[in-house]
Amino acid sequence: MILLPQARGIIARRQVLDTLVRRDLHVRYAGSPIGYLWTILDPLAMALIYFVVFTYIFEARHVGYQPYVLFIVIGVLAWQWFSQCATETSRALLAESRLVRSTNLPRELWVVRIVVAKGIEFLLSLPVMFGFAIFFIAVGETKIHYRIVLLPVAIVLQFLLSVGVGLILAPVTVLFTDMPRIVRIALRMGFYATPIIYGVHAAPPVLQKILLLNPMAGILEMYRAGFFPHELNVPSIISSFVITFATLIAGTIVFKRLEAPVLKEI
């Protein structure tokens, strides 16, 4: 089994992981007077923009479920975690090259550490999501559905997906310098290729099939399941499980293969 030794190595060094994550959060919040607020201001501003554009200009509320604000906020927050992970993990080994060169740690740690740090920021932004949810429950526009139990499943799955993607991107970037640019374009396209500001139900049937290939579609479906009483898109969820684990295994293999050349290069 390929995933086990890597996972064991990371767990054995969880204290170091903890140190690195603390350092990331420390560095991120030390330099800014309103520190934590930036974590939620950014996605909130994005959500506000999409809300205004799509409800008042395009009058396209129906592309998402109601309440549309909550629909967008969940999508944008989760996407932000994913896209920041992809951006930063692609630089993970280069940005810390001095540390990678001077400490003998399982090298996967440099990827996992970013996903965990960004994940904690994501968790810290969840109160915003719950705030909106509670507001809309209070005004009677939505109800909490028992399917909210899928929310933690979604978080774990997104974590694994991001680690898998990061394990591919980090070593490839070292050997192929143009990778960050490609990632940037891919993420921009990915934003629209993911049901963030629209629901899968609003897409034409052909696109719905293509969206099955996007693991984030199923993950968002699980995030939203507890707040929107629509019919659950089970194929999408199953597909995202399959793709996530495939990505994780592919990532582990790629990382293992490229580790030696990467260490020579940094």
Binding site: D18, T19, R23, L99, S102
Partner: peptide
């Protein structure tokens, strides 16, 4: 080797010491 590899310029020396110690 690369002694100062684990240290970050923007943090205080004290924070750096604890972090670098943690890395080792």
């Amino acid at each position: 080797i690369e002694l100062t590899g684990g240290f970050l310029g923007e943090l205080t020396a004290r924070d750096n010491l604890y972090l670098a110690g943690g890395l080792h």
